[in-house]
């Protein structure tokens, strides 16, 4: 009996859907012009032309301010740097490793070398996503140990509970990732080790 009523409901549902959607199909014939607004392709993705806007046009700087015109447009600074899919749309780590940029490690001494610590931390994650490999080397090329330890991450295995929700809300990795470093939309940059453990993704092997 229950099964029959369910089937009946399904039939009603499908019929209702046909009735609701039919006007949409027919109306498209009437207005042949392309529709704007919500129906544009990739509505949620900013087009490339809108990326890395010059300060005078970026909505935050005051274009009437004299100093604004002196500021370097990001596109000019980024033109020789390898592209990325999100954030500043440039790959900062590659740029540094290839020597395309030479940021100082010391405020006044341009020749001071970074103290790089090479240790990969593998974090097994719940669900079906590949495990996370945290590369200390790529982080210590930029940062000091004290930037993360012990305030953000307790330097002890198993002591840090990290969730994507925390990261999205700007905690843990999200203190930088999603603000100034690549955001979480680049999933595979962190989730890079196959679950079966037979081999990390190529990215983690690059040195």
């Amino acid at each position: 009996m229950k099964l029959i009523s369910l089937k009946w409901k399904a039939v009603v549902g499908v019929t209702a859907m046909v009735f609701v959607t039919t006007p949409l199909f027919f109306s498209s014939a009437e207005d042949a012009k392309p529709v704007g607004g919500v129906n544009t392709f990739n509505r949620l993705m900013a087009p490339k032309s809108e990326r890395n806007q010059p300060p005078s046009n970026d909505g935050i700087h005051d274009p009437t301010n004299e100093g604004t015109s002196l500021l370097l447009p990001p596109k000019e600074a980024f033109k020789d740097m390898p592209p990325a899919q999100a954030g500043n749309f440039v790959d900062w780590v590659q740029s540094l490793q290839k020597g395309l940029i030479k940021p100082r490690y010391d405020r006044s001494n341009p020749n001071e070398e970074a103290v790089v610590f090479d240790l990969d931390i593998v974090r097994e994650v719940k669900g079906t996503m590949p495990d996370v490999v945290y590369p200390h080397d790529r982080h210590t090329q930029w940062l000091d140990c004290s930037n993360c330890h012990p305030d953000i991450f307790i330097p002890e295995k198993g002591k840090n509970q990290i969730s994507m929700a925390q990261i999205l809300m700007g905690q843990k990795c999200g203190v930088c990732h999603g603000k100034v470093a690549f955001p979480v939309s680049d999933c595979r940059k962190c989730h890079s080790k196959k679950k079966d453990g037979k081999g990390a993704a190529t990215d983690t092997k690059k040195k």
């Binding site: 600074a77 900062w92 940029i101 940021p103 100082r104 490690y105 010391d106 405020r107 970074a114 090329q141 930029w142 940062l143 000091d144 004290s146 930037n147 930088c176 100034v180």
Partner: peptide
């Protein structure tokens, strides 16, 4: 960031 590593401002 093009001119200085994070460490310079955020640690030093």
């Amino acid at each position: 960031r093009i001119r200085f590593r994070c460490k310079v401002c955020h640690a030093d």
